[in-house]
């Protein structure tokens, strides 16, 4: 029984020290992502990942990449409480007729994680951006 108590103590100590770390810096998610430059780099690497991906590239084959890039940067900026307002179309309108499969959406999330890894975005910051994006999936897939 003592071993389990010690292990539980370790788990909770680890968690509480994480809590105190994150409350020390009261940056917005936008700032933690590296601001305008940080988000631009993430989006550029994501576009690069998509361009090299056989599974989901076909969804973007006919897209205007410059328009897509600007829209995504603006969207990430707005959703992470940055100084932007998203002016593009809503998610449902953009994806209607594309019939995006669940498999492919989830794969795109893996590519986004790769892009954030390439930019050394900390694990906890990555998760907070993902948490903002996840509710949009229902507006995107099977439309």
């Amino acid at each position: 029984m003592n071993t389990i108590k010690i292990l539980i103590a370790i788990v909770f100590c680890t968690l509480t020290s994480c809590v105190s770390l994150s409350t020390d810096n009261k940056q917005t998610l936008y700032q933690e992502l590296g601001g305008e430059t940080g988000i631009e780099n993430i989006v550029d690497d994501l576009i690069n990942e998509i361009g090299n991906d056989q599974q989901i590239f076909h969804y973007f084959a006919k897209a205007d990449i410059t328009h897509f890039r600007q829209g995504l940067i603006e969207h990430f900026c707005a959703i992470s409480n940055g100084p932007c307002e998203y002016t593009g179309d809503n998610m449902i309108d953009i994806h209607t007729g594309m019939n995006v499969k669940e498999t492919d959406f989830n794969h795109l999330v893996d590519l986004l994680i790769n892009a954030m890894d390439q930019n050394n975005v900390p694990h906890s910051v990555q998760n907070q951006l993902l948490a903002k994006l996840v509710p949009l999936r229902k507006d995107i897939i099977y439309r």
């Binding site: 968690l15 994480c18 809590v19 770390l21 994150s22 900390p122 694990h123 906890s124 910051v125 998760n127 907070q128 993902l130 948490a131 996840v134």
Partner: peptide, 10 residues
């Protein structure tokens, strides 16, 4: 699974 729920951890 709650993304980022505990100090940014899932």
């Amino acid at each position: 699974l709650h993304l980022g729920a505990v100090a940014g951890y899932n």
